[in-house]
Design a protein around this nucleic acid. Structure first.
Length: 217
DNA sequence: CTCCAGAACA
DNA sequence: TGTTCTGGAG
């Protein structure tokens, strides 16, 4: 199925997405940090949490804990009090502890061994903060690819080999960073769970948009 | 593969 | 109130 997709459609998607992204890049503070510890901490704060909610918490966190050691020294941190999912505090403590023992690795295989770091955070960290090519897959990526290219998805699609390969193919070798930021911003602003097709610059070739217009499910 | 947390949603 | 979501872990 996917091998039959025209390269034109893929190129259209990549080009227009990157183009959209460069005009709608949101300058969240963690996108600029040179501090890799802060970058990883931000990803944990962002899990299932609205980015706007994270901004102030993140800024405070960076002030309070310039290094993993500073964070470990705090016996009663309350980073997640206002964010919810408080089990992440313990996870972050474990991560911080690991980071006092070793440098942050620069490849996915080693990154994933860190507590709290899985496929998603490893890929995001590599591409966005180290500028090393990596394919970011999360629920938003699954949603936008499924819609635009017209294939059904479910909660396990993210782990399927065919989907991972497809996502690898779509992530451009050179522009991966800009592309990945664009996907993140685009799926937050336009291709949301409730799609904003009327504001979408890609709807001309979007399979989902066609189905909507024909009144199909 | 399944299970988990626990907020968000219906 | 029950169900869904989602990245990590087992």
């Amino acid at each position: 199925m996917l091998t039959q997709l025209s390269n034109q459609k893929i190129e259209f998607f990549q080009l227009n997405l990157i183009n959209w992204g460069s005009n709608h890049f949101v300058d969240f503070p963690w996108r600029y940090t040179e501090n890799h510890w802060h970058a990883l901490a931000a990803e944990i704060m962002l899990q299932r949490t609205n980015a706007n909610q994270v901004i102030n918490v993140y800024k405070e966190f960076c002030e309070k804990y310039p290094s993993p050691e500073d964070y470990i020294d705090d016996k009663a941190p309350n980073t997640f009090n206002s964010l919810g999912l408080k089990w992440r505090e313990e996870l972050l403590q474990k991560l911080a502890y690991f980071l006092t023992l070793q440098e942050i690795p620069k490849n996915k295989k080693e990154l994933i061994k860190l507590p709290g770091v899985g496929e998603y955070i490893a890929a995001a960290f590599l591409s966005l903060h180290l500028n090393i090519i990596a394919t970011i897959i999360d629920s938003n990526v699954v949603r936008v690819y499924g819609r635009f290219f017209g294939f059904p998805t479910d909660s396990e699609t993210r782990r399927k080999k065919w989907f991972i390969e497809f996502a690898n193919k779509l992530t451009p070798l050179d522009n991966h960073r800009r592309y990945n930021y664009a996907v993140i911003d685009f799926t937050r602003e336009i291709c949301r769970p409730k799609p904003q097709c009327h504001r979408c610059l890609l709807n001309k070739y979007c399979s989902f948009n066609f189905r909507e217009k024909r009144g199909e499910k």
